Amino acid sequence: MDAREQDGEDSAGESLSELLRAWRRRPLLRGRVPAAQQRRAQGLSQQEVARLSGVSERWYRSLELGKPANFSADFLDGLASALQLSPVERHVLYLKAAGRPPAEPEGDTEGVMDEQLQHFLDSQAPNPAYASDIAWNIVGTNAPLADWFPWAPHRANLMRWSLLRPEARHQLVDWRNDWARPYLGQIRYVRARHPQNAGLRELERDLLAGSREVRELWALGEVHDHSDGVVRRLRLPFHGGNEVSVSVVAMVPMRFRALRVVVLMQMPRGHVVRNGEREG
C-alpha cells in the first residue's frame, strides 16, 4: 500500500499535499529568494512560500498537510504567484484546495483571432462558419457565412441582429421557440458566469429595452448552455427565400476560451425538422 492509499487520496488522484511539495521544490523558484539566503540546491521551504504568499508559515503548512480550511481566493492567488504556477496549475490548485475553479477573468468582450483560427473557418466551406466573443460580437467569418448573412462580417452582434432586427423573425424559422428562447437562455447562463462583464450587461440592457416580446420571453427564466448539436431552419435571401435546415456545430478553441466557433452544417434537401429536432 503506497502513501496515497494510506492517506485515502488514491481515488481522487494526486493529493494537494503532493502537488504543493512538487511545485515548491522546482529549481525555477530559486530566484524568488536572495542568493545570500539560499541554502538548498533547489526549490523553496514552507517558510519561504508562506512569506512570498503573505501568510504565516502555520497557515501555509496546514494547506500542504491537507487540513481543511476556508482558503480565500486572495490566499490561493497569492500562493499561485509565489509558486509561479501556470494558469492550468492555478486551476488545479483551486479545485484541490477549494473544490471549485477560480473565477473567470472579467475584462472586456473584445475577441481574439489569429491566422490559424481564420484558416479553420475558411476550411469549413461550403458550410458557413464564424467566431464570436463572449458577448456574441462576431470577430471572424468565412466567405459562405458572409454570403448567407451579409451583415455579419462587419463586427456585428449575433444576438442584437437575431433578437431585435425585424428581418430576423422571417429569416430564422420558428423564431420564437427555436431561436429567441434558446438564445436568451444562453445569455442568461453566460451572464451568471460573468456578472461583472460590461459587454454582457450592455447586451442584456439593449435587448430588454428594444423589444416587448424579448422582455416577455426573458421573463420565462429559461437557461440554456449552448446550441451545439441542434437542427434549425433558415429562410434567407441567399437561398431565394427557400427554407434550408442546418445542424449547428459549436465549440470553444482551447487557445481562446473566450471565443465560440460555430459551423452551420447544411442538411440534405427535403430534410424534415419538428420542434428543433431532426427526423431521419
Rank of each mutant, 00 (worst) to 15 (best):
D2W: 04
R4T: 09
R4W: 02
D10R: 12
S11H: 05
L16W: 07
S17Y: 00
E18M: 11
A22Y: 04
W23C: 07
R24D: 08
R25V: 03
R25F: 05
V33Q: 10
S45M: 11
E48I: 13
A50I: 05
V55N: 02
V55F: 01
S56C: 05
L63H: 01
A69Q: 10
A69L: 00
F71Y: 11
F71V: 08
D74P: 00
D77S: 14
L79A: 10
S86N: 06
H91Y: 11
V92I: 15
P105Q: 12
E106C: 09
L121R: 09
A125E: 06
P126M: 01
N127A: 09
D133I: 01
I134F: 03
N137R: 08
V139L: 04
G140S: 13
A146W: 03
A146N: 02
P150L: 13
P166I: 12
R169C: 08
H170G: 13
Q171G: 01
Q171R: 10
N177L: 02
A180Y: 06
Y183M: 08
V190W: 03
R191P: 01
Q196D: 15
Q196R: 15
A198M: 04
E202C: 02
E213A: 05
G221I: 10
D225R: 14
H239G: 02
E243A: 07
V244K: 11
V249T: 13
M251Y: 01
M254S: 14
V263T: 14
P268L: 09
